[in-house]
Amino acid sequence: MLEVENLHVHYGGIHALRGVSISVGQGEIVTIIGANGAGKSTLLNAISGIVKTSEGAMTFKGSPLPTASCAIVKQGICQVPEGRLVFANLTVLDNLMLGAYLRHDHKAIKSDLDRVYELFPRLRERAGQMAGTLSGGEQQMLTIGRGLMSDPELVLLDEPSLGLAPILVETIFQVIEDIRKAGKTLLLVEQNAHKALSTADRAYVLEQGQIVKSGNARELLDDPSIQESYLGVKQ
């Protein structure tokens, strides 16, 4: 579904991505794990058209990915950004409706809104409240719900569990499974390697802007070097 080939990104003199190639198939959950500064968010931002790529090719459903971020959303790729980034001065409902900014099919928008409320009943209760007054966990739910409102085929999730209490982390990962069951494809960036690898089908390990390992997520979970570097298991 999504093919990224030999992607390079520079921030001024910093070479953040050094020839990254990944592929994501229809209906899969693919995860990218790696340490801070490995380039995980940069990769998602490159796919979303937020950062410029200096080299490489990306195709989505067989055709080249547009470069403008709004055109990419229109194609059916949405990013749920790290750090929530809700529109704090707008209501929860406004935030969700901005997720559907490019859509005009009012009936389908309404039914997607109901589906988001089913996924996160808390958001329905707080629909009229300013998004900035929500707790961190609720803001994360809102960010995910807002992303789903664009009716994406591919959802890019950036660190959805960051800074959340363990019980909320469980909820978020449950929702990730639910989103897949609803027919979406997910590309998940996580520092919580254990949760990510137990949820995903396939995984890539990103180190200093390069993919150093890839394969079946369960197998990587049992891989001794992964266990030592990312799961804190002492050999």
Binding site: S48, S69, C70, V73, F87, L90, Y101, L102, R146, S150
Partner: peptide, 12 residues
Amino acid sequence: HNARAAKLMGIN
């Protein structure tokens, strides 16, 4: 409020 988040919503 946040131009990057707005871009991710498909706002030009």
